[in-house]
């Protein structure tokens, strides 16, 4: 039997998704028996030219991790879409924007300025700014150009499946890969590597059920009781509004769920659901009391939309109607070229 042709790519991501594949451990050897890896820039030496040279539809399955932030990300997304029979958005960045998409709150200009001048670890006395293009004696160097908004993979090209998680759990990934290997993929359009229901379903913590929160705390402010529901202890736990799949990893380790497996099935906007669930569990029998509890929530967007901002209804609100559909303005970098961020 001919071996499967597999590709892995990273766009705007942290590298954790690639690590989650390395975490497959010995399964990688099993994988190597049935599949050839034809492209995986993080792990092996491939050039874009290698992919460009492939006929369309040459790759059986591409696991694409990372959000679409630069013109390079968008270009490779289009390229891999054309070369792959099945394109899978792998991990939270590709699926719903994840942490990179939080930059959408203030925009790409702000993110660039912050990286160049604002970080405590940046020493930039000359005030050097990123340049898209720089002429050296050896030739002209270019950097990818940032789009105004970080987007999900499916906002740029059609994808068949998504595997959520920041990063996806390797057990889930192995099951999904087995489905690929054995040709058992479900109808396109859904999630792979998840379980039914929400994180709370897999969480062993005890819920009293009627405790309402008087004041929300951030994780560094409290050592939570190891047995009890974290939400009932005043920590914003995204478990109730997050798709099951990770086995309740964080909550078992004493950290509230941050929501990386995305919205439960059929839910339009994870952040809005979490917001409602959090308010519903607030103590207070008067406007003043509820407002006081509401005011203890620090950074509402980062709390409710930590992973899902690019896939949320807010994303459409920020980009429409000026930038409708697939086009979006490109970010100009001083001296830079205009990118083709689609």
């Amino acid at each position: 039997m001919e071996k499967l042709k597999l590709a892995v790519y990273w766009a705007s991501s942290c590298g954790g998704c690639d690590i989650s594949l390395v975490e497959l451990g010995e399964h990688l050897l099993e994988l190597a028996r049935v599949a050839d890896i034809v492209f995986w820039p993080c792990a092996m030496d491939f050039k874009y030219a290698d992919v460009e040279a492939m006929p369309d539809g040459h790759i059986d399955v591409t696991l694409f991790n990372g959000a679409i932030r630069t013109d390079e990300d968008a270009h490779i997304a289009h390229l891999l879409r054309a070369k792959s029979r099945v394109l899978i958005a792998y991990g939270s960045c590709a699926t719903e924007g994840c942490i990179p998409a939080l930059a959408n709150i203030k925009g790409a200009d702000h993110a660039l300025a912050r990286a160049a001048f604002g970080e405590p670890t940046t020493d930039n006395p000359g005030g050097t700014m990123f340049q898209g293009r720089y002429a050296m004696p050896e030739g002209v160097l270019t950097l990818p150009v940032l789009g105004t908004q970080v987007r999900t993979l499916s906002q740029v090209v059609p994808v068949q499946y998504s595997i959520p998680g920041c990063p996806p759990s390797h057990e889930q990934v192995w099951q999904a890969l087995n489905a690929v290997i054995e040709g058992r993929l479900p109808e396109p359009g859904g999630l792979l590597g998840v379980d039914a229901r929400t994180v709370c379903d897999q969480c062993p913590r005890v819920r009293e059920g009627k405790i309402r929160v008087e004041r929300f705390l951030r994780p560094h402010e409290v050592i939570p009781d190891p047995e009890r529901c974290l939400l009932e202890q005043g920590l914003v736990c995204a478990g109730p509004a997050t798709h099951a799949g990770c086995g309740a990893l964080c909550v078992k380790a004493g950290m509230p769920c941050r929501g990386c497996y995305g919205a439960p099935d059929g839910i339009l906007d994870q952040g809005a659901e979490l917001l409602d669930a959090i308010v519903a569990g607030m103590a207070g029998e008067s406007d003043e009391e509820i407002r006081r509890v509401v005011s203890t929530i620090v950074d509402p967007v980062g709390t409710f939309y930590r992973f899902s901002l690019a896939a949320s209804l807010l994303h459409g609100l920020k980009t429409s109607p000026l930038e409708s559909g697939a086009t979006c303005e490109t970010q100009r970098i001083p001296g830079g070229r205009e990118g083709d961020v689609a």
Binding site: R291, P300, L314
Partner: peptide, 17 residues
Amino acid sequence: YLGRGKVALLRSVLEQT
């Protein structure tokens, strides 16, 4: 009060974005 709390939080989300 829950309605007001939701709207108050939603307003901060809209302002922040």
